[in-house]
Design a protein around this nucleic acid. Structure first.
Length: 135
DNA sequence: GCCAACGTTGGC
DNA sequence: GCCAACGTTGGC
């Protein structure tokens, strides 16, 4: 089982919509690096849901409910989508600012390459983030 | 709203 | 195949 971080602009698709839909497909990724990570996602993998721009915080978790398939929003077979299911809302938002200040998280793609919309999270990073949520 | 960082495109 | 120009993203 793997951990990931997926990014969404709340203006496009926010956490409230995710919660209401319960399940949705994650499409529209047009970046090879992100696409390659999506292809590695398996059912049951946990994705941290990050809100860019306005919030700049991780707000909860979703679970992969279907592994990659051709992105239905384009004819171009280069691109893929996955299905994700709502899991839970964090007790508090974990802000980018705090992530940057936390030891052990400075190597995260989110910190080093903020433009990558899908990125892997290591088990130890996941654990540190869980601790931040509980603290 | 600005701008840095990054990816992509296209001319040579 | 190189690299300049351009577009997009996202933090500030």
């Amino acid at each position: 089982m793997n951990y990931w971080l997926i990014k969404s602009d709340p203006e496009t698709y926010g956490w409230d919509e995710m919660k209401e839909d319960q399940e949705t497909f994650w499409d529209g990724v047009r970046n090879y690096q992100a696409r390659n990570f999506m292809k590695l996602m398996e059912i049951g993998d946990i994705c941290l849901f990050y809100l860019s721009n306005k919030e700049k915080a991780i707000c909860g978790e979703v679970v992969i409910s279907k592994s990659f398939y051709q992105d239905p929003t384009t004819d171009d077979d280069k691109w893929v989508a996955v299905d994700v299911k709502f899991k839970r809302t964090y007790q508090k938002l974990i802000y980018l600012k705090d992530i940057k200040e936390t030891e052990g998280l400075e190597q995260m793609h989110l910190v080093k390459n903020s433009r990558l919309s899908v990125s892997p999270v290591t088990p130890s990073e996941y654990k540190i983030i869980s601790n931040l949520e509980a603290s």
